[in-house]
């Protein structure tokens, strides 16, 4: 029997209103360790909603989400926060770094929440920022960094807690070609060399071209699951 990092069953999200909107309908998705997966689809197809439910940020209307065998749907808000801290890394479209912290502090922050000792934190921050090519920008605040550099700090932050996988929601959407390409190179290398599982929601063809698996959503339904 395969041990999935992520396993969703009949995952459905409906927004109630005068006319109910089915954001995701009966999605059965499994992700294995070390995958580099892109979830694609047109706007409004349910990519981000699916990603949010997998990441424990949004609750499904029905169905289940398991992360390394842990069922997320029954967890309280506080349990979900704790679960995210320990198991999931996030990279957002708009970088979303803490503006008052430096690159080093932004990366270190997650480890502080995990109560990791200072010596270990320092070593890991140095390693991560080195891996994303920002060893010389450690003391810069987000406003002193370019978009690409900020997103690379966000990747370092996402990896700081040694998560089971990283969810990246349109990570290249706000980046120019060179920065996007650079970021994807870094993530692909981390996936290949360190076995980190990445799951993207994206429109970006550059991401799709690099992905080893592409899941296509249309109107909230998984219509294609292609492995390369």
């Amino acid at each position: 029997m395969t041990n999935y990092v992520i396993e969703t069953k009949s995952l459905t999200k409906t927004y109630e209103g005068i006319v109910p909107v089915y954001a995701v309908r009966g999605a059965d998705v499994t992700i294995e360790d070390n995958e580099f997966t892109a979830i694609i689809g047109p706007s409004g197809s349910g990519k981000t909603t699916l990603l949010n439910m997998i990441g424990g940020l949004d609750r499904p209307t029905s169905g289940s989400v398991k992360v390394n065998g842990h069922e997320l749907t029954g967890k309280t808000d506080s349990e979900l926060i704790d679960f995210r801290l320990k198991h999931i890394g996030f990279v957002f479209q708009s970088y979303n770094l803490i503006p008052v912290l430096t690159a080093k502090e932004n990366t270190e922050f997650i480890m502080l929440l995990q109560k990791i000792p200072k010596a270990q934190r320092d070593a890991r921050v140095e390693q991560l920022l080195g891996e994303v090519g920002l060893a010389d920008k450690m003391d810069k605040r987000p406003t002193e960094l370019s978009g690409g550099q900020q997103q690379r700090v966000a990747v370092a932050r996402a990896l700081a807690s040694k998560p089971d996988f990283v969810l990246a929601d349109e990570p290249t959407a706000n980046l120019d070609s060179a920065s996007a390409s650079n970021l994807l190179d870094i993530m692909a290398r981390l996936n290949k060399e360190e076995g980190i599982t990445f799951i993207f929601s994206t429109h970006d063809q550059r991401v799709i071209d690099r992905a080893r698996r592409v899941i296509t959503l249309e109107d909230g339904v998984v219509v294609r699951d292609e492995r390369r």
Partner: peptide
């Protein structure tokens, strides 16, 4: 948004 991100990445309430 910033507070939302903090909670998303695992900052306890």
């Amino acid at each position: 948004r910033e507070i939302g991100v903090l909670m998303a990445v695992g900052m306890a309430k």
